[in-house]
Each structure stands twice: as C-alpha cells, then as structure tokens.
C-alpha cells in the first residue's frame, strides 16, 4: 500500500513513523524547510521520502506521485489546507481513500464528500467522546 501524508508537523511525522514501521510505503510533504530538515533524517532511515513544498500545489503533489497513492492523509494544522488537499486528491487524482485532520471542531461540518473527505479525524471530538463515555460508565457503576 502507498500512502501520502500532507503536513509533516508533529501529527504528520509521527504518523509517518508509525505507518512506516508497520510496513506501509510512504511519502510526506511538508512546507517548512526547517521542519523538513528536522524530520527528514529519521524518516529517510525508515524509507520514507520527504518532499519539501506546498501540499496544495499540484506540481508538488505530482512530484510526490499522488496519482499512485492509495491513501492520502491531510494532516496540516490548517483546516482549509486539509480540505483542499482532499478536494484535489479525490477529484483531480482519483485517490481511493482520503483522511483529513480536523483542527477546529467548528469546521467539522465541512469535512464531507463535498470536499472529497472520506474519513474526518478530530482530536477534540475524539477526546470529548471518550470523556463522555467515561462519565457515563462511572455514573452507571
């Protein structure tokens, strides 16, 4: 399986580490050169290719071979950027599966197929769900 992660911050680069260790072929696109320098040595060791550039730019996505990706993960810290990554991945490059990180829960309603998002991932919502479940369980006990 080929995966492409757009956004090599803490979330994106850790994810790349975990997936690479699980044996998935992987590329990461990160915009900041400083961040690229930081993550590249460790990821290269695991066979992950790091592309420095704007992941909303078709030329950069093509350089990272998006057309051959089975999965694209939009993991930047900006919701509009993640939406555009999925929009392009789905509509322009026919990527099978798209996952997008939701940074601001207020924007969660946008992360649907209207923007080519198959699976939205919201940390805040997940923590809230877990807490709600915890509270419900403890009140039942």
């Amino acid at each position: 399986m080929n995966a492409l992660i757009v956004g090599g911050g803490l979330v994106g680069s850790e994810l790349a580490h975990m997936l690479a260790e699980a044996g998935i072929t992987m590329s990461v696109i990160e915009q900041s050169e400083g961040q690229c320098d930081l993550i590249e040595p460790g990821l290269n060791e695991l066979g992950v290719r790091v592309f420095c550039g704007d992941g909303n730019e078709p030329a950069v996505l093509e350089e990272a071979d998006i057309s051959n990706a089975d999965v694209v993960v939009a993991a930047t810290g900006d919701d509009e950027d993640n939406l555009v990554v999925c929009l392009l991945a789905k509509n322009e490059y026919a990527v099978g599966l798209t996952l997008a990180r939701v940074n601001n829960p207020k924007n969660a309603w946008l992360f649907t197929e209207a923007f080519g998002v198959d699976v939205p991932v919201s940390q805040t919502t997940m923590i809230a769900e877990l807490l709600r479940k915890q509270v419900a369980d403890s009140s039942r006990a």
């Binding site: 909303n56 900006d78 509009e80 950027d81 939406l83 555009v84 929009l87 946008l110 209207a114 923007f115």
Partner: peptide
C-alpha cells in the same frame, strides 16, 4: 488573500 480559503468557501457555497 488566501487561495485555499477562497476555494473552500466557494465550493461550500455552491455545493452545500
């Protein structure tokens, strides 16, 4: 001034 904000907003205005 943000291309992505413009695309996201125009897409949702049209499609949603």
């Amino acid at each position: 001034s943000g291309d992505n904000s413009n695309v996201v907003a125009a897409t949702l205005a049209k499609n949603i």
